[in-house]
Write a protein that binds this DNA or RNA. Sequence first.
DNA 1: CGCAAAGCTTGATGCTCATCAAGACCTGAA
DNA 2: TTCAGGTCTTGATGAGCATCAAGCTTTGCG
Lengths: 228, 228
Amino acid sequence: MSATPPKTELLLSHLPLFNEFDHEELARIAGGTHQKHLAKGETLFRKGEPCNGFYMVVYGQIKLSVHAPSGAEKVIEIIGPGQSFGEAVMFLERPYPVFSQALSDSLVVHIAKASLFGEARHDIRMARKMLAGMSMKLHRLVNDVETYSLQSSMQRVIGFLLQNEGTDHTGQVHVSLPAGKAVIASRLNITPETFSRILHDLGASGLITVQGKDIVINDLEKMRGFEK
Amino acid sequence: MSATPPKTELLLSHLPLFNEFDHEELARIAGGTHQKHLAKGETLFRKGEPCNGFYMVVYGQIKLSVHAPSGAEKVIEIIGPGQSFGEAVMFLERPYPVFSQALSDSLVVHIAKASLFGEARHDIRMARKMLAGMSMKLHRLVNDVETYSLQSSMQRVIGFLLQNEGTDHTGQVHVSLPAGKAVIASRLNITPETFSRILHDLGASGLITVQGKDIVINDLEKMRGFEK
DNA sequence: CGCAAAGCTTGATGCTCATCAAGACCTGAA
DNA sequence: TTCAGGTCTTGATGAGCATCAAGCTTTGCG
């Protein structure tokens, strides 16, 4: 373990935002970055702290959340490898509007704002990609708002399962929960108790089979029917 | 009335997105646009329709909403003069994810995608502004999600009133509802009934005075206290 | 002006989901 | 293995808000 730290340039080159850049360009950008390792549970930044760049996740998972004065927490998003966050805040030159914490051991790359705007030649390609990236984020958020507003908690759970569905070696339709159940529940805007009960009910009606973090979807068609 | 239709260039020049452009540039961009007048209640586009540009509101109000299969409607946003919408969808080359309708007689300008990407020189300024604009939209949506998730319906109403507060001629702190109560209720993710009851309660406790669409805030401090 | 239609209010009822509380299960460390 | 820490489940209860239904008030139009 911990032989050589991964080369930042190499990491960057895999990211959508930079994948059209050549070695020389990547090297220059890499100069304005630094890697940061986070242990599980470690805080990356808090709501209200100033922002001078954005982050990309290399491995691990980062949770973005907000807190009610009461202490209640709501998970806005779970960021995985290859995804970035914080661009919007960087552009607005405002403090972070969310709290950010590692859900598991993670490696993130911080790209400082200053290092991004060098030559216009870069700008235009990057700006286009950033626009595309932000558009997708916007789209997803609108979808979230729609989901929270118009669907029951069971529909949200079903929707979540269908989104994360994948076929495993045995050919079964299968979901492996990407985080603890409390975190996922918060992401879905329900309590852990409700989440547990809904999984139970779906199991009882034969639609799924739950085994810890592994869930098998027995009747995909019927699930799709309940989704809307 | 309706003497000469307003010159598109002039309209564009007032919009944040284009306010750094000179006459010549504006003229070129104006070539790729067309104005569209909408009567109250008229539909601009439906969810699922293809998108080849974005819109800016000159006057009036446009409502963006989504519909549940049950028919229930949820207002995502109310767009007013000077604001734009549809950029994100344009970039993603996807169909509109929302339904769009005029709340009052409105004039909108449609800017075709093709006309936006001419010279790189334009691109870079425009891209920067668009990034800023989208960042703000993202910010607001994150805020919406937070609001829906963590606040009670009364807190949402109070927050809304405080956001739209302004001082009138007599020096009173005053809100004029920007749309029908049912629309605002949907925007706040509550039913019209609940909205009505909350306004009633706030009135009964002396915090506000309601008179149709005009609301006077009697105790701003106390309202701020309830907000969080 | 007077009527119809739309918009808004008010009341009675009930569903969905959060909350509180307790116990079962897992996980890792000694 | 055993114990202590979390994590998850299960049950009982109730708050908050939607729903349904009816009356009221405003708006717009012939």
